[in-house]
Amino acid sequence: MDLLVKLFKRIALGAIYLVGSPLIAFAFAIFLTYGLLVFIGVSLKSIYLFFSGRGVFTPFPEDIVAHKRYQFIMKQTPNTHKAEPNVTPLPSTPTGPKS
């Protein structure tokens, strides 16, 4: 029964897609044009950034701020899952302190 309902849904969807296909094709063409314009825009911006001595695909300022804040939050949050042994080996003994 479920399979039959699914099949009828698929058929109805097919009819909707078929009727709306000119509109779908038009929307796809609009997005393709938008994508190509974005490509040209980002290319020109990248060339300008490159020749002015700045990085092309460097992280955004918002990303840097978010990363710092995230690290700060992670440090503030106590790690309750696993207790790490706080053992620091001595510099003179590579294998660590002998017991």
Partner: peptide, 30 residues
Amino acid sequence: KIYETRTVNTPKEFAKIAFKKSHRQAFKDY
């Protein structure tokens, strides 16, 4: 991460950075 750390606080700011990232990804794809 940008949303979780409240680096952006308004829909406009969120859309601005999200579209910048989307355009950068579109450049790589195209």
